[in-house]
Design a protein around this nucleic acid. Structure first.
Lengths: 217, 217
DNA sequence: ACCTGAACACCGTTCAAGT
DNA sequence: ACCTGAACACCGTTCAAGT
């Protein structure tokens, strides 16, 4: 781990069997369009949406999809990775824009919205499809450091208790979201914010003479 | 609720559009065979197994399946209801065969095995398919009283703390099982038994001078 | 290199013909 | 009443033909 700047392949996509090979510009454009279109279609119609529909809306032939994503599940996995990246990347932005406690709260809400919207996630992870094999590791690799940073500065600022790890918080919230599928995303948000309130309750220093009436949502 | 003996339709199947109509003997035999075959196939190949495979193994035409179960999901739901029934019916049997604490432990294991084996359950419940709409209610209606009886007599015997409801225990264990899908059913069993040990720990009267070395599993 | 889309295999569901 | 299975619609995936 001596890399000073780890590449999380946000935009570029590295393909099986073509390691290090540069993709042609038009192909890369197709890939981007495909991922964006697929994300939109999955969001509205679910991950079971027909491949043909995505190809049509993206303006390409079905063959193009299969050239870049050999299996239908590879496309789904790629979209998930994109959304994980977006969620992780939101952390430093929020940290720069808000004070530590508020940044943490907002990020957790963002995380909840991400998970709660993906009713296909649990299905995918337990399908046994090898395309999803690396997804849990990627999920953890990207999201845990993101939350850890927020958690640590909030703890340093005394706004939050310091004895809860990013890993268990990530897992607990995900668990709540999965369980709240039956109830809808409102329930998930409420339970998650209850959890964060719990974090605040056990902080070293209570709100004190801080502007404590800053909650609206 | 003045019925002295509620009918939980264990064996008979009541059909939409034919309320009260008796089914012919050969049809009933087909239904039973179908449910048994489907249960076996789902267990080995998962709930995505082709309808044709089930029809073939049951020795009937596909049309026969669709006559009794208009949608594929109706067959899945029927199999689930059967297994829920079997699990609920195991409670009084265990209660008659073992002392209260042991009966409770054994039933929870049975329940875990039921849930942990059904990786299709979460998928089904969140699919939005109307065939599964009544399943959660049926689940609760049958399983909650079954567990409640075990829990109450174990609590009366002082083997278990009395302040945990059947509903929350049922939910907690199911939650553990769902979450343990990634790890396999072993993890689920361990966490569930930990939970029951927790119930025991807070009992009114500790093991005392009871034959406490009765655990083997 | 990359793209296209007809073609193939497979699966859920229907329904005319049988008993 | 009930059963059968060919037929239909639809979807994932492939690959020969194009650029």
């Amino acid at each position: 781990m001596t890399d000073k700047q780890e590449d999380h392949d946000h935009s570029g996509v590295e393909f099986r069997g073509h390691p290090g090979r540069r993709v042609r510009a038009d192909a890369q454009r197709n890939i981007d369009t495909l991922l964006q279109t697929a994300m939109a279609v999955f969001a509205t119609s679910g991950v079971d949406a027909p491949v043909r529909e995505i190809a049509e809306k993206a303006g390409v032939g079905v063959g193009t999809i299969y050239r870049h994503f050999p299996q239908r599940s590879d496309l789904i996995a790629a979209v998930f990775r994109r959304e994980i990246d977006a969620c992780a990347d939101a952390a430093p932005v929020l940290a720069a824009q808000h004070e530590p406690g508020e940044a943490l709260v907002r990020w957790v809400q963002r995380y909840v919205d991400f998970i709660a919207a993906k009713r296909g996630l649990a299905k995918a992870l337990h399908s046994g499809d090898p395309a999803f094999d690396t997804l849990p590791a990627y999920f953890k690799k990207r999201l845990e450091p993101a939350l850890k940073a927020l958690l640590m500065s909030a703890a340093s600022a005394g706004e939050v208790r310091p004895d809860v790890s990013a890993e268990e918080l990530l897992g607990a919230v995900a668990s709540l979201c999965m369980h709240a599928f039956t109830q809808g995303p409102e329930q998930a948000r409420r339970m998650a914010s209850l959890l964060v309130d719990g974090l605040r309750y056990g902080a070293n220093s209570p709100p004190k003479y801080k502007k404590a009436a800053r909650r609206k949502a």
